[in-house]
Write a protein that binds this DNA or RNA. Structure first.
Lengths: 109, 109
DNA sequence: TCCATGTATTCGTTTATCCGAATACATCAA
DNA sequence: TTGATGTATTCGGATAAACGAATACATGGA
């Protein structure tokens, strides 16, 4: 297994970012930062249908952002690397600064 | 303009991440980190058609990840906030660690 | 004004993403 | 084995993103 080329690295990198590019998945990561949770608990916590949560978790799992551990019939999800939360927090700082500079970023929605 | 709710913040946050979720845009940000560039120079540097670069830049500009400055007929793009590169670098560290973990698993099997 | 250079947009198509609804699959206990 | 609980997947339709090709638009100089 050789080191990835710059293009391959950019592709992997973009894949990670793309997994972060959904508000529900952002919320899932923050929830799992508080504590590991199984699927139904997450679904309840985020007031979201279980299949929807399960699909989002699959995306995060495929990118290795979360890991799983079976506990009876339940599957407990946890963050793979808490540094990812630090990353998200820095992004939020940048975002807040950006918002205070130009308050019309909301228009992109 | 009031502070965003948690849901609104997650949405904005995800929008930023989604803008990062394309390998070409990752490459653009790293290129602009080296130095500000105008569109054609960027297109040449990344060996990519100018309209493609222009569309990617629009996405980054809408999310306030890059800013523009006109220089005659040319439009020079630059990073809005270099902290975003620090964010990307941390993500790459996490990604590399993730890859090496997977490699270990593959070696065992 | 006309031309050359540089940038942005539109069009059409393809591909990807997202969700609700339904259902299949997995695990454990009785 | 059956039922209860928990998880994952499939299907179908709607929405969004991506690209090549063509072209419109902007700027400055002759």
């Amino acid at each position: 297994m050789t080191a990835p080329t710059l293009d391959e690295l950019s592709l992997l990198h973009a894949n990670i970012c793309q997994a972060l590019g959904d508000p529900k998945r952002i919320q899932i990561l923050y929830a799992l930062y508080e504590q590991p949770l199984h699927v139904t608990a997450l679904a309840d916590y985020l007031d979201t249908p279980q299949p929807t949560i399960s699909r989002h978790l699959r995306v995060l799992r495929q990118r290795a952002l979360v890991t799983t551990e079976r506990n009876g019939a339940a599957v407990v999800y946890r963050l793979t690397d808490e540094r990812m939360i630090a990353v998200l927090e820095t992004m939020r700082k940048i975002l807040r600064d950006s918002l205070s500079r130009q308050s019309n970023v909301l228009n992109i929605m």
